[in-house]
Design a binder for these strands. Sequence first.
RNA 1: GCGCCAGUAGCUCAGCUGGAUAGAGCACGGCCCUUCUAAGGCUGCGGUCGAGGGUUCGAAUCCUUCCUGGCGCGCCA
Length: 561
Amino acid sequence: MKQEIAQLIQQALDALVAAERLPGDISPTIALDRTRDKAHGDYASNIALTLAKPARMNPREIAELICEALPQADFLAKTEVAGPGFINFFVTHTSSQAVVEKIIEAGELFGHNKDGEGRKLQVEFVSANPTGPLHVGHGRGAAVGDSLCRLLAATGWDVSSEFYYNDAGQQISNLALSVQARCKGLGPEDESWPEDGYKGDYIGEVASSYLAGDRIDAQDQHVSGAADPDDLDAIRQFAVAYLRREQDLDLKAFDVHFDIYFLESSLYNSGEVDSTVAALIAGGHTYEQDGALWLRTTDFGDDKDRVMRKSEGGYTYFLPDVAYHLNKWNRGFGRVINEQGADHHSTVTRVRAGLQALNKAIPEGWPDYVLHQMVTVMRNGEEVKLSKRAGSYVTLHDLIDEVGRDATRYFLVARAPSSQITFDIDLALSQSNDNPVYYIQYAHARVCSMLRKVRDEQGEWSAQTGIAHLGLLTEEAEKTLMRRLDRFPEVVANAARQSEPHTIATYLRELSGEFHTYYNAHKMLIEDTSLRDARLTLSEAVRQVIANGLTLLGVSAPESM
RNA sequence: GCGCCAGUAGCUCAGCUGGAUAGAGCACGGCCCUUCUAAGGCUGCGGUCGAGGGUUCGAAUCCUUCCUGGCGCGCCA
């Protein structure tokens, strides 16, 4: 529709230039927008405003000319010049109803597109090290990352989700030492408790499970406890598997799935870390100083150079990071999105710099990053800081337990990742219209409830039934709904392109609000079956779009509540 | 000090990448409501878009300076 109108404008312009009523040296790009205010019609163009200067003419005058020169089109009810020189386009009623039929036909595929053209894309998210339970911040990463995967898959990309973790570094040693200390009956209050040890109660749980010789089956790890408190290596392997399994369970409860779990240690085992160092040295981007090996990241926009091999011989974290991303590139992911907490933003420049130094074929801005800001959790108007079990932060598990998966996912994905958010437990728990999750799900359930009623009364009822009668839907509230429904594909396309899943949540909130208003103002199950069927078909279209949107967010669409 | 993110109604946040009078929910005021199961519905009040300057026909949106808040500035990850 948008393209067709843009074409009409182009034809009008060509005709005007040919008739020398407009100068020939103008080369406008046609901007056509959805209107914000329905008094301005369905679409509006600012073309006359942008032409005013180059054509040295009054914008309203140009708009009038274009309006007159527009070819006839059966989908346009009228056009008008408004304000400083906007051209407003009003689509015919028949034409705006078409979206309902389209939704009924496309079903759960409505809103999907082929933007990605089947290209390979990877989303890496969560990537928590197995040193403790997942906390709210990881939850936000999981909600945003998983929703991104869903959005991108729905828009034609061949998506692979990946979880990367360090299973061998300093922090894992601290973990192993902490568990070992617990095995020997020590607690964090003891003097001989390891420096930088992990203090949460869960360390004790890992220790007793290890001593009991339990078998641990994580997604990518299978280990049995050796029960020997002196075997630090066995403890390390066991603890990693144990905590990985815990994280698996949390992610499963959150309905988040990963295609690949990638271990940092594999980069060492495969020799990729060494070959990356060798390539960087060979490329002339390194130098030795103070016994360490430095990468000249300042050549690629960093504010200072970075150590890649410490004077004691070990590598800093950032080197395997570069090797890891080279590995991603070599796997053929032309587009990679890394979803992580904003506290890691400094790695962005570093990783890209390392990649630039390695391979000029890699685009400068590769990979993409989506960085989410902090989450604070509130209960009874007060900030919740502690999780007894984890010893410091609120765990994802606590939240899912308390407010449920749907509310947790919704609240964590409903705001722009770049803004800090407050997670209000009381609001998430509330079963009233104050709670947007409830409000949206309720709209969905409401339609299901009506349809159930009709089917109970007369047996079969299909949404096809009302399509022939859509012309009866002339109420303002009905037009408002159809306008909103028509926008869904653009909202999805935009959310995927800009990596902004929260716009789906905003859209659903608006659609649901408009539906509730409609439902409250107009009887649906009425005597006049033609009008009834038309309204039910529109309602079914609303339901379908809500379901599709909620699916993109990883939130369920219940048929009754 | 440097870098990243943010600052929009009393509160929590949107704002379709530069458009027309800045939006929603909560809170607050008023009026309805006992229903197609719905813990409600309608309506009103409320804003110098952190501040100044600039670009533009047109700025919450782009540039710039400052202010405030968060995060990060290790041979930690």
